[in-house]
Design a binder for these strands. Structure first.
Length: 313
DNA sequence: TGCCAGGCGGGGT
DNA sequence: ACCCCGCATGGC
């Protein structure tokens, strides 16, 4: 569907703000082109796409849509601001990053990066389900397949690129058989459970969905709500955290939670995602080798949270 | 081939 | 409270 330009707005982000880092953070191929961010938005009956470009110390938000309804325009601007975190003040978080072996560079070389959020909890849960029991690369491949096969294709004038929305819960239910082609394995049933849950209620208690536990629910709340007070504990963190901060072997989920709450307080969830970004989300064995040698590689020559946008598949 | 990879629930003890 | 297993799929 070809959208038309309906609105433009200049936005001043809270400083310090790095547009390029934020726009590329967990962006897939059509969401960032090295200069501009493209944000697909789904409103069930309507769709919108916001192109965001850096302008001096401001950002130009250009709204494209299939309607010129002011409700949709207002929602698009609000959601795009939220997704790029332009109004988020990380001053207190940076205080906690000082002298941290993993997060220290966030207050230096990577200062101003926000995590790139998604439109809502539903899109967050889609991401976290794809991350269950799979590597970073495999999880994001699943999500790419889901958007290409079930989402709505969008285009804007003078740009050949086709960009796909996240499918809505309704689209997932209607096109459930297409999930078989997305290589999501047994996760297809969890995705269906989640779609039904979101059609029926507005609850944030995602753990009620069969197939969603603490890790997936917390990650979804971080990405979909920018709610940072819970640390999502998976096998990766339950080995990485004790290794880096105590030189010990694997901790229980409970112990990692307690450590994270004490160390990062209300910012624990943000710390978790930022750790995956600056480590390049490598598999545990590779990452522990790198850390042993005292090096981190947030920008490797392979798919990682900050480089994913360079890869089409 | 076999076994892991940012989970989870169901079953056992 | 724990431990263990199966569950799809892809990569090594």
């Amino acid at each position: 569907m070809l959208l038309r330009h309906v609105y433009s707005l200049n936005v001043k982000p809270v400083k310090p703000y790095s547009f390029d880092l934020t726009a590329s953070c967990y962006a897939i191929s059509w969401e960032y082109d090295g200069h501009n961010a493209y944000i697909t938005l789904d409103y069930d009956k309507h769709v919108s796409l916001v192109k965001v470009s850096p302008r001096e110390d401001e950002l130009l938000f250009e709204v494209y849509a299939d309607t010129s309804s002011s409700d949709i325009i207002d929602s698009a601007i609000r959601d795009a601001r939220f997704i790029l975190g332009v109004d988020e003040d990380l001053t207190n978080f940076y205080g906690l990053c000082k002298n941290d072996p993993l997060l220290g560079i966030l207050a230096e070389r990577f200062i101003g990066m926000r995590i790139r959020a998604v439109q809502n909890l539903w899109q967050g849960i889609l991401i976290s389900i794809c991350q269950q029991n799979a590597s970073f690369k495999q999880g994001w491949k699943m999500l790419l397949n889901i958007r290409r096969k079930l989402g709505k294709p969008l285009q804007i004038p003078n740009n050949p690129r086709i960009m796909f929305t996240y499918p809505s819960p309704r689209q997932v239910i209607e096109k459930f058989d297409l999930l078989k082609d997305c290589r999501v394995g047994y996760r297809d049933k969890v995705i269906l459970n989640a779609a039904r849950f979101f059609l029926e209620n507005e609850s944030e208690e995602l753990e009620k969905i069969k197939g969603i536990g603490q890790y997936s629910a917390r990650l979804a709340r971080i990405l979909g709500l920018r709610k940072y007070d819970e640390f999502p504990v998976d096998r990766w963190f339950s080995v990485l955290i004790p290794k880096v901060y105590a030189n010990e072997d694997k901790w229980t989920i409970r112990r990692v939670e307690e450590f994270a709450a004490k160390k990062w307080d209300k910012w624990a969830g943000l710390a978790a995602v930022m750790i995956t970004v600056i480590t390049g989300a490598k598999t545990l064995t590779k990452l522990l080798e790198d850390i042993q040698q005292g090096k981190l590689s947030p920008l490797p020559d392979e798919p990682a949270p900050l480089t994913l946008w360079r890869y089409e598949t």
